[in-house]
Amino acid sequence: MVPLSWYLILSAVLFCLGVFGFLLKRNIITIFMSIELMLNAVNLSFVAFANYWNTHLDKLPSGAQMVPLSGHVFVFFVMVVAAAEAAVGLAIIISVFRTRETLNVDRVNLLKL
């Protein structure tokens, strides 16, 4: 009843908002959170498609095979990786903060040519 495209549009909007945050914000942690937002948007898209294929399996091109529930499994893996990444990333942020005393990403420019 809810058209698939709505979910996809929502996913795209969230993704773009995440990219905006990634480009425009100055705080490292906020940038990180934008990345998480992007990941969530993608998760939404996966789940939506999992449901879609579940009911519209006939729309698959001939010869292609799919298990509809693998979308959920994929979301599971995404979350696991996101957790690992968040842990390591935050550890890096902490160590950067210790040396640079700032969370402003523009100040972390020691690799400048």
Partner: peptide, 16 residues
């Protein structure tokens, strides 16, 4: 992307 989705939404079905 939005435009594509809106115009192509006829081909896609709905989700239940």
């Amino acid at each position: 992307v939005g435009w594509l989705l809106v115009t192509g939404s006829g081909q896609l079905g709905s989700v239940t």
